[in-house]
Write a protein that binds this DNA or RNA. Structure first.
Lengths: 279, 279
DNA sequence: GCCTAGGTCCCGTAG
DNA sequence: CTACGGGGCCTAGGC
């Protein structure tokens, strides 16, 4: 049995289950009527309501409502969870130091408490990141511009590391800043900062180019680049069009063998089945 | 009853419960042995493992493991959840458009499925934000420097809005950039960008000051500021020291009325009880 | 919808 | 530990 659940437990029962789950290193969910107080880098307070508290064995605490991707309150990994019954309420407190922070969740009633044994990989490799873009451009330097010669990635300067550094066909140093998505003014400032650092290194009269590579650029950023004498080149990130096989398979059909739940999910076409390609 | 739970349901049973919970607008948790596939702005794949899937009625989907504050995979609010049984697995798919993105969670087995009716406030007012810092400085302009006169907040320029704009005791324009925490090179660049925009507005020979206000600054950022002729002033954010009453109370004692759960939680001292001050 | 910047950002990596 | 920048960042506020 990899999950333990109690419904509408007394606070003592809930406390006992929490203690056991802490010891087992389980992932814990607590749903109930609670208040939430946070004090640390900032401070906040949340009145009574039914919410879901998630407690992880690494010290993470998350309070979720029925809206938003982000938790309404939280405590980062490395915290310590404590539970106690006090003033007729079940209090779950997650604390960490450096910085000193406390999250307090006080339950008037606990509707459900579950403890689950998690397993399997929790790290995942994402394709389509800036690093992937960099590697693709290193394989095809001409995609940047004809004759571009890469010299270094993450080249250090005294204002931070340059994504990609090289020389153009005429031997001029080129500072390349890569972004996986549309860029705004901050990316232009970042590139300018790096270019000026290289100019200082090479001598103030050095002819150093700055090149921002991204799928697109906002108007303001384009103007900033122009004013600073920097260049822009549009390059799509190498995610969806490079490896579209699995995406197409996942996109093509729906709802065959059995019924379907949810609004507006019309079966498009019960065509040929794709081979299962996971696990 | 505000929570419905099934343990080790068949996929058909799980599907039925999901459908009902979607209709009720419940917050849903599904714990089980699953794979996770994502394709959209990037792409990722995660092999079999026991994980917790959180589905919100606003379209949010979160896949959590036993580590990290951030979900290992997710789908933002506005997505549509669909569920189906296929190839002997329960498939939960969250889809959105613009951008086109799909999250697929395929359960080999479902250990537990719960549906909860959430209620109560989900918005929370945080104290200690940059806006609080700004308001505190507007109340006490002399905390910035003697004779400083605030003129505008979020003053627009053609490179973005200035946090706080004013004039010093000698009538010179001052661009103030506020940060609630220690700042690095990017904040210095940001301030420089604004200052140059104001200089262009006022005429290139204008004497415009730039002032970065934050709790502290890194060495590189300090050097960047100096090179650009910009200033720095250390100001603590107005969070923990302003309203320390509740924090102290929450910090003082632990574990009185009943027992205590968790590792390393020695009861410090069962001293005087503080008054309950929430709800 | 896009743009701009904040965030208790979180997170990994390098020093 | 700090520092720096990426992120499928997310989220709020304007336009």
């Amino acid at each position: 049995m990899t999950v333990t659940t109690v419904h509408q437990p007394t606070h003592r029962e809930a406390l006992w289950e929490l203690e056991a789950a802490f010891d087992r290193g389980d992932l814990i969910t607590v749903f109930g009527h609670c208040t939430v107080e946070y004090d640390g880098r900032a401070a906040s307070s949340l009145g009574l309501g039914r919410r879901l508290l998630l407690l992880k064995p690494d010290g993470t605490a998350l309070v979720h409502t029925d809206e938003q991707q982000q938790p309404v309150n939280w405590q980062p990994p490395g915290s310590e969870h404590h539970a106690a019954v006090r003033d007729g309420r079940l209090r779950v407190r997650s604390v960490r130091s450096s910085p000193d922070e406390t999250l307090d969740v006080r339950f008037e009633t606990v509707e459900q408490l579950s403890a689950m044994a998690v397993s399997g990989r929790r790290d995942l490799s994402v394709t389509g990141s800036e690093a992937d873009l960099r590697n693709a451009l290193l394989d095809q330097p001409d995609a940047i511009e004809a004759g571009f010669e890469p010299l270094a990635t993450e080249r250090p300067t005294d204002v931070g590391p340059i994504d990609l550094f090289g020389r153009d066909s005429e031997g001029r140093p080129v500072v390349v800043e890569l972004k996986r998505r549309r860029v705004g003014p901050s990316a232009a400032s970042q590139l300018q900062r790096y270019v000026e650092a290289i100019r200082r290194e090479e001598g103030d009269d050095a002819d150093v180019r700055g090149l921002l590579i991204a799928p697109s650029v906002t108007d303001r950023a384009r103007r900033l680049l122009a004013e600073a004498g920097l260049e822009f080149a549009a390059v799509e990130p190498p995610s969806s069009d490079s490896d579209a096989g699995d995406a197409d398979a996942a996109d093509a059909t729906d709802a065959n063998d059995d019924s379907v739940a949810a609004a507006g999910d019309d079966a498009s076409g019960p065509s040929a089945a794709e081979p299962a390609n996971d696990e």
